[in-house]
Simulated scan of single mutants.
Amino acid sequence: MTTALIRPTADLYDSWAAAVNEFDGVHIDGSGLQAPVVPGRVTLDALIRDAAVLADTTVAPPEDRVHNDLYWIVDDREVVGFLSFRHTLNDWLREAGGHIGYAVRPSRRRQGYASAALALALDRAREIGLERVFITCDDDNVASARTIERAGGVLQDISDQTERGHSLLRRYWIAL
């Protein structure tokens, strides 16, 4: 397994579409896509444009957004998941979203991809000078909680975000 984070690219369209399809149209954490998610060339082209805008730190991000590096988690040119690294936190991210969001496609879970991708995202956080990152997962997502804790995550609290469409959230800080 050689896990890497790459920017969205049309070169991996078929693999991206297959990965997105495994989520059956629901929201995919870290993907930069809004539910219902239907893969297609137009969707990917828009995602690539949006990713470029959000990653460009020379211009202010659109209102209610923050600078954000959108990545695909890949293994040998197969898209196995998605990761979003936000450079700063706005009000919503400070409560529920965090600096890092990720998802691994169902057929590739429990193979170490989330841990490897999170480690790479923490390297990116160090590159831009962050001293710690905030990360959340649903309280019932035991696998994600373990991944975060293995990466050094310290539980801040369990927050009730049901009014924002979430379940109970485990909220962690990882010191860098």
Rank of each mutant, 00 (worst) to 15 (best):
M1C: 12
T2V: 14
T3L: 12
L5A: 07
L5Q: 03
R7G: 11
T9E: 13
A10M: 15
A10W: 11
A10Y: 10
L12R: 14
Y13W: 13
S15W: 12
W16A: 13
A17V: 00
A17S: 14
A17I: 00
A18S: 11
V20W: 01
E22M: 06
E22Y: 05
D24Y: 03
H27P: 04
H27C: 07
D29N: 13
D29T: 00
S31A: 13
Q34P: 00
Q34Y: 01
A35Q: 08
P39N: 07
G40E: 11
R41T: 07
T43P: 02
T43S: 11
D45Y: 00
D45S: 09
L47G: 10
L47S: 11
I48G: 04
I48C: 09
R49N: 10
A51I: 04
V53Y: 02
A55R: 15
T57C: 12
T58R: 06
T58Y: 04
A60S: 11
A60L: 08
P61W: 01
P62Y: 05
E63C: 05
V66S: 07
H67G: 09
N68K: 11
Y71M: 04
V74A: 06
D76N: 10
D76A: 11
R77A: 14
E78F: 09
G81Q: 03
L83I: 09
R86V: 03
L89G: 03
E95I: 08
E95V: 03
Y102D: 00
S107I: 01
S107A: 09
R108T: 03
R109C: 10
R110A: 13
R110F: 10
Y113R: 04
Y113M: 05
A116D: 14
L120F: 10
A121H: 06
L122S: 04
L122Q: 05
A125N: 06
E127Y: 05
G129E: 01
R132I: 00
F134S: 06
T136E: 09
C137H: 05
D138G: 12
D140L: 09
R150Q: 14
A151I: 08
A151G: 11
G152M: 06
G152I: 01
V154H: 06
Q156I: 08
Q156V: 09
Q156C: 11
Q156D: 05
I158R: 15
S159F: 13
S159G: 06
S159C: 08
D160C: 05
R164W: 12
R164T: 03
G165C: 04
G165S: 08
G165V: 02
L168E: 14
L169G: 02
R170I: 03
R171D: 06
L176Q: 10
L176A: 07
